Amino acid sequence: MPTQGQRQNYLWRPNDNSATTRLRYDLEAEHWVRSVKSAEIKYKPSNLAADLAAIGLFVGLVCNLISIVLILLIDFFKFIYKVVVNKKKKREKRIAEVLKTDNFKNNRIEQIIADRPKTFHSQRSNLFKKAATIVVVKQVVSISNLMYELGVDFEKVSQIIDELYDAGIISDPIKGAVRNVFIKDKKSLDLFFQVEKSYHV
C-alpha cells in the first residue's frame, strides 16, 4: 500500500487509461475506504459501557423507588399508630366518664333506696317492673297511660302506683295528681334493681 508521500505524487491524468493509473486509483480508493472503516470502529461506543450505563440507571431508579416505598410505609405506620393511640385514649377517657357517671348513679340509687318506705319485694305485682319501665322512660306517672299500656283496670293500676312509691321510684302526689320520678333513665332503673337485690328487699 502506498505511503502518504507516495500518494502526494499521484497526478490526475484523466486521459490516461493505462493499467498502472487504474491500479493507482484502485489502491487510493481502497485506502480511503479502510481509513473510514477504521475511524468508525475506533470512535464507536463500546456495547459494554452502554450496558453498564443502562444497568446503573435501572439500579438508581429501583433504589429511588424502594426509598419512596419505605417512606410511605413509615408514614402509614405512624398514622396507624396515632389512630390507635388516640382511639385508646378516647376509650379510656370514655370509660372513666362512664365509671364516674355510674358511681354517681349508684350513690343516687342507694340514697333513693335508703330513703324509701320499706316494702318486701315478694309483695309486688308481676307487672311492677313493666310499669316502672314505662314510668321511667316517659318520666310521667299517668293512671290512664298505665291502664292502657298494662291492660289492667283502675284498681290494679292504683296498687302498682303505690308499689312504685313504696319502692322509691316515684314521689308522693304533689299539687293534686302530679308525682315526681326519681329515676331518670332505663339504665338507672336497671341499676336500681341490681342495687335493690343487694339490700335483700
Rank of each mutant, 00 (worst) to 15 (best):
E149W: 03
K100C: 10
Y43K: 02
M147E: 15
L72I: 11
R116T: 02
L70H: 09
V137T: 08
L150S: 00
I41P: 00
D16Q: 10
Y165M: 08
E110P: 00
T101A: 14
L127T: 01
D102G: 00
V136E: 02
I80P: 00
D26W: 10
T3K: 14
V178Q: 07
D115H: 12
D102I: 07
Q123R: 12
V137P: 00
V157P: 03
A54K: 15
F104P: 01
R24E: 09
V62T: 05
Y25P: 00
N9R: 14
E30N: 10
P2C: 01
N106M: 13
K187F: 05
K105T: 04
A96I: 08
S38D: 14
R22E: 04
E155F: 07
Q123D: 10
T20L: 11
V195D: 01
I74Y: 07
L99M: 15
Q111W: 11
K82I: 10
L73M: 06
V137D: 12
S35M: 11
L70G: 01
Y10F: 12
E110R: 15
F193C: 03
L99G: 01
S46D: 14
K93L: 15
A177V: 13
D190A: 07
R91M: 03
L61H: 09
N126D: 11
E155D: 08
F128M: 09
D102V: 14
L73C: 07
K175C: 01
V135E: 04
L52E: 11
R179G: 01
P117C: 01
R13S: 09
D166Q: 14
A131Y: 06
Y199E: 04
T3N: 07
N47L: 11
N47R: 15
Y81S: 03
H31Y: 15
W32N: 04
V137Q: 15
I74V: 11
V83Y: 10
D153H: 09
L191F: 06
L99F: 02
L127Q: 07
E30L: 11
L127V: 02
V83R: 12
T20Y: 09
I55Q: 13
V69M: 05
F193N: 09
L164M: 07
L11E: 15
T133Q: 12
S125D: 14
Q4D: 12
K130P: 00
A53D: 13
D185F: 11
F128R: 02
N47P: 05
E196T: 09
G176P: 05
V59I: 14
N17P: 00
V181Y: 04
L57S: 11
S198K: 15
S38L: 15
L73H: 03
H200S: 05
K129R: 13
V84D: 04
T133F: 04
V135F: 06
R34F: 08
L52G: 03
K78P: 00
S18K: 13
W32Q: 13
L70E: 12
D16E: 10
L48P: 01
R124S: 02
Q194A: 08
K93S: 06
I170D: 01
D172N: 10
V140M: 09
N180E: 15
S38I: 04
I169W: 05
I109F: 03
I66C: 07
E92S: 04
A114T: 14
E110D: 06
I113S: 02
G176Y: 09
N64A: 12
E155N: 04
K105F: 12
I161L: 02
T20F: 10
Y81E: 05
K78C: 03
